[in-house]
């Protein structure tokens, strides 16, 4: 038996909204420690890694580890029915064929119960080594989101350069070229603050289309942490009370 009660159901709604355009069918791994998933997008360019810690749920029980194959598309449809103030219970019997979702209103005035059919999915699991990155950028998630969105109007590729003093977002397209540079600072204003932890200068190129999809998670966390090393995928990390959502994106490389 697996059962998890989440008092703040809105967070699950936001998580699923943040990944549904990247991955459509995923295996959730449920253990006594956590609910987690790892899934690549169809083109194998981006990877979503989600961990929700058991200890952060109001109630949590998982008698035996289980893999739950879920259509994210269909889960998103059901979660749309949950109110923003609703609590959410996730429940599955051992060797389950359905995932039960129970949405309960704040004053217990209304309860919705749905059984989502589970899928048997072949999943390709990637081993991601722990590694030190050359540069780590911590900044406002909404500011990063805004920069990516604005630069998408110029072209489809973001050139990201980080040194010990600043981070530069540069683009080059048919209409011309441009860049936005932000200096490391410890401003009280969260949208201005930028923390750099840089051992080596890094300059890499990434597809803005994917960064824009990742930035849907800015509703989950005020901050985003970008981890960069030459010639390896960038990591965008959004941390929140319940756990963390990380996205990996393979760089664009010179032809």
């Amino acid at each position: 038996m697996f059962e998890a009660l989440l008092g703040n159901g809105l967070i699950l709604k936001k998580i699923i909204e943040s990944i549904k355009e990247l991955v459509t069918e995923v295996n959730f791994e449920v253990t006594s420690e956590a609910i987690s998933l790892q899934a690549m997008d169809a083109s194998h360019v981006a990877l979503v890694v989600l961990v929700l810690r058991a200890s952060e749920f109001e109630e949590y029980r998982c008698d035996r580890p289980q893999t739950l194959g879920v259509s994210i598309t269909n889960l998103a449809k059901l979660l749309k029915i949950a109110g923003n103030d609703d609590s959410i219970i996730l429940r599955a019997e051992d060797e389950a064929h359905v995932l039960t979702l129970v949405f309960t209103g704040k004053n217990n005035e209304k309860m919705c119960e749905f059984n989502l059919n589970l899928l048997t999915l072949d999943s390709e699991h990637l081993g991601i080594p722990e590694q030190e990155y050359s540069a780590e950028v911590t900044m406002s998630s909404s500011e990063f989101s805004r920069i990516c969105r604005e630069l998408t109007q110029v072209t489809d590729t973001l050139n990201l350069s980080v040194d010990k003093e600043s981070v530069k977002f540069a683009v080059s397209g048919d209409i011309g070229t441009g860049s936005i540079t932000m200096k490391a600072n410890n401003s009280d204003k969260s949208e201005e603050k930028l923390i750099l932890n840089v051992s080596d200068t890094v300059s890499m190129a990434f597809a803005l289309r994917y960064l824009n999809l990742f930035n849907k998670a800015s509703s989950l966390s005020d901050e985003v942490v970008l981890s960069l090393s030459p010639e390896v995928p960038v990591v965008l990390k959004f941390a929140f009370d319940l756990g963390e959502l990380k996205y990996f994106l393979a760089p664009k490389i010179a032809e």
Binding site: V45, L126, P233, A254
Partner: peptide
């Protein structure tokens, strides 16, 4: 010009 690389060229399947 740049080309988009894919993740399995960095991480191996487990």
């Amino acid at each position: 010009a740049t080309i988009q690389n894919i993740l399995p060229s960095y991480f191996s399947s487990t």
